[in-house]
């Protein structure tokens, strides 16, 4: 409710399509719940492709599920708000939420290969989605499903196939077509191509780009594969241990990564062009979210966190860094950078 008050005169400004404010999601109850997402601020403009990258378990998928409000217990939203076109969806009634899903935000799931119900014909799964939101007879819905399939390069007669009769790549396209079926403003792609081989992966992403030009939807692209984002995203947010540590336009992030974690991620795959440099991963593993490190959550793995620099070291291990703008559109949460900027 307080959020509505913050909105200037309650009108829908053109500022953002989706805005997360201080979002926190907890798993489990009791004295030490795991905070899978801890105080995330994120904004997405209309028609924009925002990439969200990070290691598995950093909270990316949890954010996607929170935006669609399909978190399953024991996960729950502990704090913050999720504004869609300026309206907080956390306050919505069950029915309003049901209408909001897919109509406004649809989703292509992680391992979308298993996202289709194996005992239902593909067409019926389209029909289900359409008829949950509008009055349309089965025949017309099926015809539209066929058209949508053609859009992603699948024969419209495939509406009467069962999922097991389609290849992995085809199933993926079917899910993408299904995500388009109500022409939503935002499509969340959650690791949409990890199960596919590289060639199919590229084809599908190019198709999504083409569709985006035609339909004009925004995309929240979640992946652990930063190289994909550099190619397809307008802007990239890097997540670590439930927090956003850096956001920047894709090109700038590639050239001038500021956070040591982003730098580590970029070093862990070969550059598409230019001289080959030895690949180095990031040593260590993500922290236990039930008991995250104090101070900067990345400090136990950070190459620049050295006890010799006593003052910096004290801040790194005790103070939680916040996101600071270091340049138009580029924000970083790191004591090293804050130091330099000041």
């Amino acid at each position: 409710m307080t959020i509505l008050v913050e909105q200037p005169s309650g009108s829908r400004r053109k500022t953002g399509l989706l805005e997360l404010r201080g979002l926190a999601v907890e798993y489990g109850f009791g004295p030490r719940p795991a905070r899978a997402v801890d105080g995330v601020d994120l904004a997405l403009q209309e028609g924009e492709v925002l990439g969200l990258a990070g290691e598995s378990g950093c909270g990316k998928t949890t954010i996607a599920n929170a935006v669609l409000q399909i978190l399953r217990p024991p996960a729950r939203i502990a704090a913050g708000s999720i504004l869609f076109e300026g309206e907080d969806i956390l306050g919505k009634s069950t029915d309003d939420l049901r209408r909001y899903r897919w109509r406004n935000v649809s989703m292509v799931l992680q391992s979308a290969m298993n996202a289709l119900n194996p005992v239902m014909r593909v067409g019926d799964q389209f029909v289900d989605a359409m008829r949950a939101h509008e009055k349309i007879n089965r025949k017309r819905a099926l015809a539209r499903a066929g058209e949508l399939l053609e859009l992603v390069g699948i024969d419209h007669r495939r509406v009467s196939s069962y999922p097991h009769q389609l290849s992995g790549g085809m199933r993926q396209r079917v899910v993408i077509a299904m995500a388009l079926s109500l022409e939503p403003e935002l499509i969340i792609l959650d690791e949409p191509t990890t199960a596919l081989d590289v060639v199919v992966q590229r084809e599908i992403l190019q198709q999504v780009e083409a569709l985006k030009r035609d339909f004009g939807f925004a995309v929240l692209f979640i992946t652990h594969d930063l190289s994909l984002l550099l190619e397809f995203a307008d802007r990239i947010a890097i997540m670590y241990a439930g927090e956003i540590v850096e956001t920047a336009p894709a090109a700038r992030l590639a050239e001038n990564p500021q956070h040591p974690y982003t730098q580590g991620l970029l070093r862990s795959f070969p550059p598409l062009s230019g001289p080959l440099t030895p690949l180095t991963g990031i040593p260590g593993s993500p922290p236990d979210l039930r008991d995250p490190p104090t101070g900067c959550r990345f400090h136990p793995r950070c190459p620049h966190c050295l006890p010799e620099q006593a003052d910096l070291y004290r801040r790194q291990t005790t103070e939680r860094p916040t996101l600071r703008v270091i340049e138009q559109g580029h924000e970083v949460a790191c004591h090293l950078v804050a130091e330099g900027a000041e």
């Binding site: 798993y27 489990g28 109850f29 009791g30 719940p33 795991a34 217990p73 024991p74 039930r290």
Partner: peptide
Amino acid sequence: PHRSRLRM
């Protein structure tokens, strides 16, 4: 609650 966290 304790258990679900463990399961997770």
